[in-house]
Amino acid sequence: MTLHNDDVRAIAALNRIRIEDRDVEATAVALSGIFGLFDALAQVDTTDVKPMAHPLDLVARLRPDRAEPVTQSGTYQTLAPDADDGLYRVPKVIG
């Protein structure tokens, strides 16, 4: 499959990655090359094959409903590029 410049722009916007106009073409070429690898799969008959989501055929282990206090919230806040009054700050979002 070949990806075009508009495909690259759309998927980059969906993933919130700014791609400069001058880089769009090169990215489209690189991604098209990668998607070229995938063509092999289309030839394989997988009609009765169950999708494999996980390497081990296990089921979830559940945890008892016990609350533990959050002791490090102060530390977590210090990791933030912009936090104030216990809140993370982001540019104004209009509801």
Binding site: D84, D85, L87, Y88, R89, V90, P91, K92, V93, G95
Partner: peptide
């Protein structure tokens, strides 16, 4: 949205 004058606060 009203936590700060020019920013949104996230809790």
């Amino acid at each position: 949205h009203d936590a700060f004058d020019n920013a949104t606060g996230i809790d």
